[in-house]
Nucleic acid binder design. Structure first.
Lengths: 110, 110
DNA sequence: CCGAATCCTAAGAGATACTG
DNA sequence: CAGTATCTCTTAGGATTCGG
């Protein structure tokens, strides 16, 4: 308890519930970066600026549970784990890109 | 100190910075509701399900500082204060609606 | 390399009473 | 009505260590 990630699997999913899933500090940045394609854990850790191991693990797990990403393990030495956006996850990209875009306009005075 | 809201006014605005502004628990829900038009404080408090006075005040202040909403005071008795989305705020609506939409698909099995 | 396990605290969030 | 002012309390998030 205390550190559990919640998965919402049924019923309607309001905006608030969507935000419960991907409204955290790191979900959207991660999704955004994963839009460029499959990535390994360490790559992600380097790409998502400012994140630390714990947070990355947590968010990835959360997103996997919620069907936003896929986790593939390869029995190599050293181990390889790749994360990919599911089609459900990809469907979030327009929203996120749009938010990012808004940030750009925002910056340029407006 | 400790309860200050930050305003990002210049330079580029990354996704992460956008989320610093509207990534909180209540911002997007409030914006979403304000999309229906001008609203008074009490109306908002009733409309944004689950929010309380303190949070609403905080978020509204934040959004005003960041140019997302406008606050208009009328010297009536009892006092009237109306909140409206600015055009900058309105530009967030597609993203938010899109997230909401995603939640709907998400709910229906996908 | 991947990630689990700890430990810790700053901030977010909630409830409620009160004032102009 | 539209907020302040307090007082708690939870938890998201951060730093770091350790193990397969």
């Amino acid at each position: 308890m205390g550190e559990n990630n919640l998965s919402i699997s049924e019923k309607t999913c309001s905006l608030k519930e969507v935000l419960d899933i991907i409204g955290g500090k790191w979900s959207m940045p991660i999704i955004y970066i994963l839009s460029k394609g499959k990535m390994r854990f360490k790559e992600l850790e380097r790409s998502v600026e400012g994140i630390n191991t714990r947070m990355l693990v947590k968010e990835l797990k959360n997103m996997e549970v919620n069907g936003i990403i896929t986790r593939e393990v390869f029995a190599t030495v050293p181990p390889t784990v790749e994360y990919t956006l599911t089609s459900k996850g990809e469907k979030l990209l327009p929203s996120i890109a749009s938010l990012h875009q808004w940030g750009q306009e925002f910056a340029s005075g407006m």
